[in-house]
């Protein structure tokens, strides 16, 4: 993958490992990724695929015993790994925001919604007046704007409410408002809908899509649900056991998956269009990420495997905009 000028986020060769007693866990192993201005990138994988650790690495939030072993992470051309913690903190709050998995555990019950949004604005928003009443007023105005943007009615009044006075769906909206308070250029939404029922899930995803258009923001949607990706993402990246296995425009990848894992994922989700056809789960388990043999990581679960898969497999380009990590692509492309 060649670097392109103009990417908002550009990650190359990212390796994040966790030193455990049992050995070194290679949670993210050589991930390359781009996020372009204004696009929505879906990042798909099972738990343990490295999708959350990849973005924790981008945010500088990998906790010990984890560490980034190598790789570059550039945001608007700046190398985030070279920044001081203070500078990184500034970018993280102001330009890159992340929504938490569970809104029910992210809001402090003892503080009003207004206090919690204002706290974030005071910490990160450098456009606010520096002191006094003007600062409070400007922050308050912004908080009302953001709550209105996420569809909280009578936002001015609601600033005085406590989290328990809102429903689960409303709290999720408030979390998004807090993440968006400083109008970031990139929103990383990690399973934004895990704790919500299906109707509210759809509302939250619609909301993120709508705000993305209105603010011209880029979104990374981390999910295990290819159905969600097909509806909301321009491009999709599929991760398996710490590596990218397939990447490309969503319609192309879902319409014509090239990696056996992506094909398996698509066969394993219930879809209206395939009603009556059996759902086929992918047999087997994600390999242990300690002491992985240098071969295709999907080998043990793959129904298309051949002996040649028992060697390191590099990403292969499929036309200009697609890539997949499968040796058998070459058979298909041969005349």
């Amino acid at each position: 993958m060649s670097g392109t000028m103009g990417n908002l986020l550009e990650v190359r060769g990212l390796r994040t490992v966790f030193d455990t007693r049992a050995g070194e866990v290679r949670a993210v192993d050589g991930v390359d990724l781009d996020v372009r201005p204004g696009e929505c990138l879906g990042v798909v994988g099972e738990s343990g695929s490295g999708k959350s650790v990849t973005f924790a690495s981008v945010m500088g939030l990998v906790r010990s015993p984890g560490r980034i072993e190598e790789g570059t992470i550039r945001f608007e051309g700046r190398d985030l790994r070279a920044l001081s913690p203070k500078e990184l903190r500034r970018i993280r709050g102001r330009h890159i925001a992340m929504t938490m998995q569970d809104a029910l555990t992210a809001l402090n019950p003892a503080l009003t919604i207004g206090e919690q949004i204002l706290e974030v604005l005071y910490a990160h928003d450098e456009t606010l007046p520096s002191v006094g009443r003007a600062r409070t007023e400007a922050a308050r105005k912004k908080a009302v704007e953001m709550l209105t943007l996420v569809g909280i009615p009578s936002a001015d009044d609601r600033l005085r409410y406590y989290p328990h006075e809102f429903s689960g769906g409303m709290r999720q909206r408030i979390m998004i408002a807090i993440a968006l308070a400083c109008r970031p250029k990139l929103l990383i939404a990690d399973e934004p809908t895990t704790a919500l029922d299906v109707t509210i899930q759809a509302q939250v995803l619609e909301l993120i899509a709508d705000i993305r258009t209105r603010l011209g923001m880029s979104v990374v949607l981390i999910t295990h649900d290819l159905g969600v990706v097909s509806e909301y993402c321009d491009r999709v990246m599929v991760l398996y056991a710490g590596q990218v296995v397939e990447e490309g425009p969503t319609a192309a990848v879902i319409g014509d998956p090239r990696h056996p894992y992506t094909k398996g994922l698509l066969r394993s989700i219930p879809r209206l269009s395939l009603r009556g056809q059996p759902i086929e789960p992918i047999e087997g388990q994600v390999p242990d990420l300690i002491g992985l043999p240098p071969q295709c990581r999907f080998y043990s679960r793959c129904n298309e495997r051949i002996d040649a898969c028992l060697q390191p497999i590099a990403m292969r380009e499929i036309g200009a905009a697609r890539r997949a990590r499968c040796i058998r692509l070459e058979e298909e492309t041969r005349p």
Partner: peptide, 18 residues
């Protein structure tokens, strides 16, 4: 509330950037 009551919840609710 501020002067008389302290709260501890199941989740810590610490501000992540501080």
């Amino acid at each position: 509330r501020l002067s008389t009551i302290g709260f501890v919840f199941q989740f810590h609710f610490l501000l992540p950037e501080f």
